[in-house]
Design a protein around this nucleic acid. Sequence first.
DNA 1: CCGACTTCAGTGACAAAGTCACGAAACCGG
DNA 2: CCGGTTTCGTGACTTTGTCACTGAAGTCGG
Lengths: 221, 221
Amino acid sequence: MTILDWTERFHGTSRLPKAVRDRLRTAARIVRCPKGGQVFGPDNVPDSLLFLYDGRIRVSQSSDSGREIVLYRVEAGESCVLTTACMLAEEAYNAEGTAETDVTAVTLPKHAFDRLVSEEDAFREFVFEAYSRRLIDLLRVVDDVAFGHLDIRLAERLLVLAGGREYIQATHQQLASELGTAREVVSRILQDFQKREMITQSRGRIAITDKAALKQLAQST
Amino acid sequence: MTILDWTERFHGTSRLPKAVRDRLRTAARIVRCPKGGQVFGPDNVPDSLLFLYDGRIRVSQSSDSGREIVLYRVEAGESCVLTTACMLAEEAYNAEGTAETDVTAVTLPKHAFDRLVSEEDAFREFVFEAYSRRLIDLLRVVDDVAFGHLDIRLAERLLVLAGGREYIQATHQQLASELGTAREVVSRILQDFQKREMITQSRGRIAITDKAALKQLAQST
DNA sequence: CCGACTTCAGTGACAAAGTCACGAAACCGG
DNA sequence: CCGGTTTCGTGACTTTGTCACTGAAGTCGG
């Protein structure tokens, strides 16, 4: 599969027109990152824009005390604007991107990015929409952390992580890192869920036995 | 003072070049908002970009349960990109902007904004930098709320709000809204500060008596 | 100045969440 | 099967959030 094919398919998913595709084809470079690898982070500051072609990146922020919280996820066809932000701001930040699957991305040098933004309306729309979505995502995180109740947030997250399936492969620590809380707290709440027969637990795995009840809990404002 | 003067001075503060200034002069419109008014909010969704010429806007988010948290402040010469984000995303959001002083702003219709972004490098830089700064601001808020300790955050905020002065004109409720917590919690912590002789309190007013101690507390990671 | 009214702050009891220290159980490689 | 590692459970304690109520400090009309 050539770079051309990649950018073709990438543009297919993000619905960018041919003109943009042509520009990207000449300027873009392909980078890969194995599952579990750090795509970007405090040590690993990127100098290019990042467009995700395949895979999923988890963007999280960690505290000095070792706790962690997931900010959002970047899916295939999306751009990771946080890298841009940090690039431009040149400020210290402690957010990092982790490859949740094997990841293939298209990187675009700043000058090429500038040209595309100025010359291609569709690309510009795409970029601004990406920024907007992330801002909204972060607003949601702030709202959850500042005002949300943990049992509800955990129920929500279990349902999201399960997707269609009826189980989740994750440790209590991983769930705590999703929500920005401590493992013990997750353990307590999960035990409560178990007592109420909404889930059953085994090591590193949670089975949802009463999805309806979980949903009801998750939606109880 | 004419629109031209306003845009002149606005561009002066934000260091935009003449070409941008000319464009703005033709497309921009001046809006005002009295102190305490809502510049934007769930009910009051703007359809234009907002550039703050004079005054200060407090952007905060409120919960269903009546609590509130300040996300950041927009100072003169800055742009409020959150309005843009919400405009583009067309999603429900519960952030609102309140005029902390009498406010004068320049609004720019979307089409004019698009042209400027595509044709003027300096303006594009300005806009992207604004987005980046807000993203970073929100990262900081998330970090504080998720991992920070309230006494430290309150000490920080007291120092910031005091600026150079040795007192702060604010109720406990207002301070609680700054930090996204409850009034009672602020009252408790302030009483502690008072016992430790870092502040003295009177109704709606807090005097800092030991700035050094407050600073030390604020910096104790 | 007085009394009614509003706003602001203090308090105690309790619930929810975070921290710490420790131990038990499940898994893994040899 | 054994020793080491990871994951989970638990109790004690601290911090933070919630609720209901009290009193104190300002405001305003008369």
